[in-house]
Write a protein that binds this DNA or RNA. Structure first.
Length: 262
DNA sequence: ATGGTTGCTGTGCAA
């Protein structure tokens, strides 16, 4: 089963790119972030015609997450538990049944947190604490679980082309990186880092200042695996070439193959 | 080099 994550930065503007990439990469499950539309504006029919079931947790203008799945959904839940006041659409969780058993997938759009010094940074850290609590609870199920999405976290210096440019940024502050490590320390495996320690692997290049042309990227889109998923990990990839397409997102897809189901 | 670009919205905000 191939599970992917991609921050598309507007699913409506990126529909052609997304359909072209689905055809090329043939993922079974895709978590989309920053769809930037309400549920009823999501181009559901186009994805259904491509062979996918659709689950959407949208929001007007900003944020918004969705999951595409070739297999039908056994469960869909939206919203990260732990704060009833949080109205931002950043979390969706699905369960699908593969022949060998259920696979649970959480699609996340973790808050950016900038500018540091505003309420945005504590919101990010609070969201990460809530995610940790939720993942800890899910891990007790002892099933294959993938928590993937735009984490807005640069875990290590080698995950940025120019780490010094990020030292005061919410994506790379020590507290941010510590919270990400706390998540890993629950027993999750970073799929990409389970297969390579290579530097220079990025998933985001800013639209500004020729970041793509200079390969000034950062790695902030991650797939974290429960032990039962990590045991079945077969391959991981980053579809960097998609950043060079016409009208690209500033993020590219990241995917992992698990030896479960199709 | 404290800029630069993109998307949605509303003529600014978020990233």
């Amino acid at each position: 089963m191939r599970i992917a994550t991609w921050n598309v930065n507007s699913v409506r503007l990126r529909l052609d790119n997304t359909l072209a990439w689905l055809k090329e990469r043939q993922p079974d499950i895709v978590c989309l972030q920053e769809i930037k539309c309400q549920d009823e504006q999501f181009p559901r029919e186009a994805f259904e015609a491509a062979g996918y079931n659709v689950a959407v947790h949208g929001q007007k203008g900003f944020n918004g997450v969705a999951v595409l799945s070739r297999l039908p959904f056994d469960e869909v839940t939206t919203g990260l538990p732990g704060d009833d006041e949080d109205v931002q659409s950043r979390f969706i969780e699905v369960v699908v049944s593969a022949p060998e058993g259920a696979v649970r997938v959480c699609g996340i759009y973790l808050p950016n947190g900038n500018p540091v010094g505003t309420e945005k940074y504590p919101y990010k850290l609070g969201w990460m604490a809530r995610l940790k609590d939720h993942v800890a609870a899910r891990l007790t199920l002892e099933e294959p679980l993938v928590v993937c999405g735009d984490y807005n976290v640069i875990p290590e210096a080698e995950d940025a082309a120019n780490p010094q440019a990020w030292v005061n940024d919410a994506l790379f502050l020590p507290q941010t990186r510590a919270a990400f490590r706390e998540l890993l320390n629950l027993g999750l495996t970073n799929a990409l880092r389970a297969s390579t320690d290579e530097a220079g692997l990025y998933s985001f290049w800013d639209y500004q200042a020729g970041a793509w042309q200079r390969n000034n990227g950062i790695l902030i889109d991650h797939l974290l695996l429960s032990p039962q998923a990590a045991d079945r990990l077969k391959a991981v990839g980053i579809d960097k070439h998609v950043r060079g397409w016409e009208k690209p997102s500033d993020h590219v897809p990241v995917w992992a193959d698990l030896a479960v189901g199709v």
